[in-house]
Design a protein around this nucleic acid. Structure first.
Lengths: 162, 162
DNA sequence: TAACATATGGCAGCTTTGTTGACACAATAG
DNA sequence: CTATTGTGTCAACAAAGCTGCCATATGTTA
């Protein structure tokens, strides 16, 4: 006489959910460490990295575009963006159609620095992809995408160019 | 006459790496938002959540155990831990073998609160697992584990009970 | 043209959560 | 007995979020 054990199944499911939660935490923790170390030597922080990264990925983006992408307030962004502009990593060009806009671009210095930061994450992620194999990588993308807010998945897909 | 186009392959690989980096960022951003909102109404922050979470997962853990797991300094931990103890979410019991240790446990109040916080992430992750399917979930775990520092993967595997 | 809306920038001040360094005390280990 | 370990605490600082308010230039619309 066999029957399903619902508690047992629930327990299993909970363990699987906690596994995802914990792996996400630990992976993110380590994933940010290498660039953080480089940033610290330049008196920058993680917030500067994000701005450099997304300006590099979306040249000509506007301030409000970045605000929506990063979901932070104007003041938070303006602090780090101002420093990056002051120190010559980013330039702002007045928009041609709409002259209120400040279109953001990396300078050569900014591109160089972004490449240096990216290199650390590149090797970590490339190694992980290689060890896990292409099928695992697809699953990795798919689950992560579904963890993103449903009404934001479109933006993300658009951002990651797929 | 056919030959491989190395630049093209490199370009593709870079896009795939950036996709992982960006998905990790966006997923983590949204993943932390639901609990953050609940925490804010209790005058707690994300750091309190982590302590509640890992004490719940490792009842009887010590202060130094938590320090190693979270990789923060004693002072950072002691601030949030002190608040959680003061407000009755966590109790400290003197270790029996080693009476210098303070073994940490959630109170009933603490367990209830942890459950409430977990529920938000549970439903987000469960939904993502469901949409992506079991194979994708395996890949998700595998890539994340490989993103963790190599010399920490053992600890993590031990933590997630596998 | 006048009024409203939008994109951006700036100031003041607050909070959370990380950091360092120094010191103290109880308990354990050698 | 001495050294080390586990924990707690104080002071001070920094990064990066937040709110609220105000200013200016530019675009849009009635």
């Amino acid at each position: 006489m066999q029957h399903k054990l619902p508690q047992s199944n629930l327990y299993l499911r909970e363990e699987e959910l906690r596994r995802g939660i914990e792996l996400l935490y630990f992976a993110y923790r380590d994933f940010t460490r290498d660039p953080d170390e480089i940033l610290a030597t330049s008196n920058f922080g993680r917030a500067h990295h994000r701005v450099l990264y997304f300006v590099g990925r979306n040249p000509g983006t506007t301030v409000s575009g970045l605000l929506k992408l990063l979901r932070i307030t104007k003041q938070s962004l303006s602090r780090v963006l101002g420093q990056l502009v002051d120190e010559g990593y980013i330039v702002q060009k007045t928009g041609e159609q709409d002259r209120r806009q400040r279109l953001l671009h990396l300078t050569d210095k900014g591109e160089l620095f972004e490449k240096e930061l990216f290199a650390t994450q590149r090797s970590r992620v490339a190694e992980a992809y290689k060890k896990a194999g292409p099928e695992a990588v697809s699953g990795f993308w798919e689950v992560l995408l579904n963890i993103v807010d449903e009404d934001e998945q479109g933006h993300v897909l658009n951002q990651i160019g797929k």
